[in-house]
């Protein structure tokens, strides 16, 4: 018990002494401060990230599938094609649900994204490619609704907004695992070693 307490005290002391800001690979921070204070309110025009698991950061606004179809026709179709099925520049954004254990895996917002607000975050910051950050929040909600409707994740009468978007059940929600490497365990064999193997070798032996 005592040792546990001591450990705890030691850990806190470490934290207080070095704080969160000790850069271990570099010299000590100079005792200067050249940054200029700014309020969070004044940062808002740049504060566009969404915490996609919860939807925190989703702005006010709303859009429907029908509105989204219009936005899509005007701003997205040229690259992504009719009904988001793939166009001259990019492949499909529809389908692939259930394909994660198949070959190929078909990767679309519907099949791949674990959280629905990812589509809002990405579309608002980066789309359309020739005019990023030009869509209104309503338009981003609307075009997101259209894409998820085409993926059969929501109905045609769905109203996409900050409340409804995080509640869409995404099929790939539980497919992610955190980095657990190193995974491959190789040895430094120097003589009479097995020859350099291939992916096919691994699959052949796995299938045996």
């Amino acid at each position: 018990m005592l040792s546990v307490k001591l450990c705890g005290a030691f850990a806190s002391a470490l934290f207080l002494t070095f704080g969160a800001a000790q850069a271990s690979s570099y010299p000590e921070r100079p005792d200067v401060g050249f940054g200029q204070p700014i309020s969070e309110a004044d940062i808002q025009p740049w504060n566009i990230d969404i915490h996609t698991p919860s939807g925190a950061g989703l702005p006010p606004g709303e859009g429907t599938v029908a509105q989204g179809r219009e936005v899509y026709q005007a701003r997205c179709l040229a690259c992504h094609g009719e009904k988001a099925a793939g166009g001259p520049v990019y492949g499909t954004m529809v389908g692939g649900i259930g394909s994660m254990t198949e070959r190929p895996r078909v990767l679309t917002p519907g099949s791949m994204y674990p959280y629905a607000p990812i589509l809002f975050d990405y579309t608002r910051r980066a789309m359309p490619m020739d005019a990023p950050q030009s869509l209104s929040n309503d338009e981003v909600y609307a075009v997101s609704a259209y894409i998820y409707y085409l993926n059969e994740l929501i109905g045609e009468d769905f109203k996409m907004n900050a409340e409804t978007m995080p509640q869409i059940k995404m099929p790939n929600r539980d497919a992610f695992i955190v980095d657990d490497r190193p995974d491959a365990q190789a040895e430094r064999c120097m003589s009479d070693c097995p020859p350099i193997g291939t992916v096919a070798d691994a699959e052949w032996k796995a299938g045996d």
């Binding site: 990230d49 969404i50 915490h51 996609t52 698991p53 994660m100 254990t101 895996r105 990767l107 917002p109 791949m112 994204y113 674990p114 959280y115 990812i118 975050d121 990405y122 790939n172 497919a175 992610f176 695992i177 955190v178 980095d179 657990d180 490497r181 190193p182």
Partner: peptide
């Protein structure tokens, strides 16, 4: 915690057996 944006979920993740995806695999081995 991380925002799990597109570049952390649908991109830069590694396909794993059983339909899984390895996320935040950031060290270049």
């Amino acid at each position: 915690g991380p925002a799990h944006v597109r570049g952390e979920t649908a991109r830069y993740t590694d396909p794993m057996p059983d339909g899984k995806w390895r996320q935040f695999s950031m060290e270049m081995e």
